[in-house]
Design a protein around this nucleic acid. Structure first.
Length: 268
DNA sequence: ATGGTAGGACGCCTA
């Protein structure tokens, strides 16, 4: 049976609810994981999601900053909301659902951006980002309880050379510094996670999911980065049929600076 | 080398 899972940093779910509705109606993913909802749970637009057929949701939001939500048109249950770095931030929610013969644990992450200065000794936000990635070592793909796993989200790191428009020019820019990309890839591999976007579109093909708001013409300059990711445990990777980056969404009216990424699985 | 834009909440932090 097919399963489609999408991830999208929406940069205010309330402001961009019309875009979310357009995306859900055009692409109809089974599950959509949102980041940067910037919305406390009691103000989350539950009714609007229910109205378009997405009646199952796990939300973890706070006022003004961060916030994640996983919405679905098929049953999902909240598994856990994990706090990282003892900061009290809403940056993770995991949900659980049945698909084919699998019970799948789906992690939805919003990793700290890390500020501008890539030196943990003088920039606490960069320190926080590195600590957060280190703590993600405690989220392995293989569960002792036999769940299969998917991990998605805005991970705010572009690990490979072809994940940025210019490897050389971004080596000292937060999101692509060696200390980030190396600890990120080490964490992913140690956790047993497969990078599904790269399984489907290997290097050196350029893959971007984010384009800065500050560009005069984002599409013409195309200075993008792959900050959003979809990973899975080994036992699901072979069932991946398709990965789609919805680049068009960056050109929609009042867009997020991130675009949706959709994974389609054919599960037994 | 620099500054550029956007959102939340309303002065300034975060991305």
């Amino acid at each position: 049976m097919p399963l489609t899972v999408a991830t999208w940093n929406i940069n205010s779910v309330r402001l961009r609810m019309p875009l979310v509705e357009r995306f859900l109606s055009e692409y109809q993913p089974d599950i959509l994981c949102l980041q940067e909802t910037k919305c406390p749970d009691d103000l989350f637009p539950r009714k609007a999601f229910e109205k378009v057929g997405y009646g199952y949701m796990g939300i973890s939001g706070q006022k003004g900053y961060h916030g994640v939500a996983t919405v679905a048109r098929r049953p999902i249950a909240v598994h856990e909301r994990r706090e990282f770095c003892a900061m009290g931030d809403c940056r993770h929610i995991s949900t659980r659902f049945e698909a084919g013969s699998h019970t799948i644990l789906l992690h939805n992450f919003y990793v700290p951006a890390g500020g501008d200065e890539p030196d943990p000794d003088i920039n606490p936000k960069f320190r926080h980002k590195l600590d957060f990635v280190a703590e993600m070592n405690g989220v392995p793909a293989q569960q002792s309880d036999g769940f299969s796993s998917i991990l998605v989200g805005d991970l705010n790191i572009a690990p490979l050379e072809s994940d940025v428009w210019s490897h050389k020019q971004l080596l000292r820019v937060v999101s692509h510094t060696p200390v980030e990309t190396e600890s990120f890839e080490a964490m992913r591999k140690a956790g047993g996670w497969v990078d599904l976007m790269r399984q489907h579109n290997p290097e050196p093909e350029k893959l971007y999911t984010w384009w800065s708001y500050r560009a005069q013409d984002w599409a013409a300059s195309d200075r993008g980065r792959r900050l959003d990711h979809i990973w899975s445990s080994d036992n699901l990777a072979g069932s991946l049929k398709r990965i789609e980056i919805v680049r068009d969404a960056r050109g929609w009216e009042r867009p997020s600076d991130h675009v949706p990424v959709i994974a389609t699985f054919a599960l037994d």
